[in-house]
Design a protein around this nucleic acid. Structure first.
Lengths: 135, 135
DNA sequence: TTTAATTGTAATATATTTTGTTACAATTAA
DNA sequence: TTAATTGTAACAAAATATATTACAATTAAA
């Protein structure tokens, strides 16, 4: 996760949470984060596919939450945006001739997935609701 | 961590652990990982700065562990190589005019560092020794 | 019905990060 | 003295992330 996707997603969801039942435009959100509106819409599209938000086209269009704040956990957000494991990537092409190189990825798998699970279980306990209360 | 540095560092340390008191060349290690020897030396340099390995130049030179296998935790390795937080980067330049944009990074800080700590505490319990035993 | 505003998405461009490569002075053992 | 090796710098290439532009499709409201 050497990118801003989690931070961006949380920022978006926080604004939607605070907007309640209003439709919020990507332009408004982009102004708060200070990124391009098209970037907001791209990430919004991911959050829609995850079932967290809904969008509406056309004049007076925009986005809003699809679930209540307390039904959205930060794990849902993380899972929606994550594109690598916490401990990073493995070296593909390790040597089949070396006893270590031959099997190391299988051994790393355990640690890698255990670490990912740990993070997800921790984020599962945190809700958008409690995050937004801080503001 | 959208890179291979942790996997590479663990691979290196595993080979050194299995080599015992011998000096292992970057060329040999590179062959097992199937990457460029200069890459191995770069990462080795990081592990040296972390106090985990020692190097020797010249003919019959190479690297070996500076501590016993059981004294090296995977957290030591992770800390040595990590260059981003688990949950990624924050958006710098968020709007000072928006009540959310104004303070969100401070609020995210809590979650971000808590998550990093969680991972480190978990890796702290795992030693190079127990990892290497699997081979 | 027309207009204005907005999404969703694709295509392209730019920037940043990661990985790979080459080169070589300094060092060390034999 | 020779041969092998590190440590590091400089540069190149590839992969990933972010930004920008454009526009068809849609929708509310005039």
């Amino acid at each position: 996760m050497n990118n801003t996707r989690f931070a961006t997603a949380i920022h978006i969801l926080t604004l939607l949470a605070k907007a309640g039942d209003e439709w919020v435009s990507s332009d408004w959100i982009a102004g708060s984060i200070n990124i391009n509106p098209a970037m907001v819409r791209k990430e919004m599209s991911v959050l829609q596919n995850a079932g967290l938000v809904v969008g509406r086209k056309g004049k007076e269009g925009g986005s809003k939450l699809n679930l209540s704040q307390s039904e959205i956990s930060l794990a849902d957000v993380y899972i929606a945006v994550k594109n690598s494991e916490v401990l990073g990537k493995k070296n593909l092409h390790t040597s089949a001739k070396c006893p270590v190189g031959k099997v190391i990825n299988k051994k790393l798998d355990g640690i890698f997935s255990e670490t990912d699970d740990l993070v997800i279980r921790s984020l599962r306990k945190k809700t958008l609701s409690s995050f937004v209360k801080q503001f």
